[in-house]
């Protein structure tokens, strides 16, 4: 359906914006390495089903490889910055102080409690869906601490948040058209979108009106 296509396109767009930002500017100011590492973990644990070769569609498979590949590539580009732009790297590390163990622990626990089947594949999938819902927190924490961000960085966060928000009408659509109700994704998707809500509001008030992102 249209919502799901738009959501996936928004997800693709967010990654393209991020890659272009890092490659063009040759700096990583305001981008959280911790959030990017969490996304590598999210995609690697979610798409383990690639190894079972029970592929849903060519579209799904290609997208899965794309998300795993680009998330690893982003982390590599950011690590390269240690050599090519040490000032920017040090500045980023100085601000990227969110303790991710407070996300990893609870997500592992939630995966053990809420899952569709007690198998390695399903537990990893559940872990990834919980982790994705909170993976943006180090990035948002960094943003709130520095108080401002480059417009491109905010476009990246917006596109990334929009992707999960657009999955919500997709789930409503699928409930009525296929009687499909996949509770874990829906709950974590709502949680994820809620975490973005503050950001969305400021983005709408400031960036969309061309005023640049600055926190009150």
């Amino acid at each position: 359906n249209i919502f799901r296509i738009l959501a996936d396109l928004s997800h693709l767009a967010s990654i393209v914006i991020l890659l272009e930002t890092i490659r063009k500017a040759r700096q990583i100011d305001g981008i959280s390495l911790k959030t990017q590492i969490l996304y590598v973990l999210v995609f690697c644990t979610r798409y383990l089903d690639l190894l079972t070769f029970r592929w849903t569609s060519l579209y799904n498979t290609l997208m899965k490889f794309f998300f795993i590949g680009t998330s690893v590539y982003v982390v590599k580009l950011m690590q390269d910055c240690k050599l090519t732009n040490p000032v920017s790297y040090k500045d980023m590390m100085f601000r990227d102080t969110f303790q991710i163990k407070y996300l990893l622990g609870p997500c592992a626990l939630l995966a053990l409690v809420f899952n569709y089947k007690f198998t390695v594949l399903e537990l990893c999938w559940s872990f990834s869906i919980w982790l994705e819902s909170v993976a943006i927190l180090p990035q948002l924490f960094m943003l709130s601490r520095s108080g401002k961000a480059s417009t491109l960085t905010t476009h990246y966060i917006f596109a990334l948040g929009l992707y999960r928000a657009l999955y919500i009408p997709n789930w409503i659509w699928r409930y009525y058209s296929e009687n499909r109700l996949e509770k874990l994704s829906i709950f974590t998707g709502l949680l994820q979108t809620a975490l973005y809500s503050d950001f969305f509001y400021i983005y709408y008030r400031k960036v969309m009106k061309g005023r640049g992102f600055e926190l009150p």
Partner: peptide, 10 residues
């Protein structure tokens, strides 16, 4: 069939 499509989203 329902089960196979459980994770058909990204």
């Amino acid at each position: 069939n329902q089960k196979q499509n459980l994770h058909d989203e990204l």
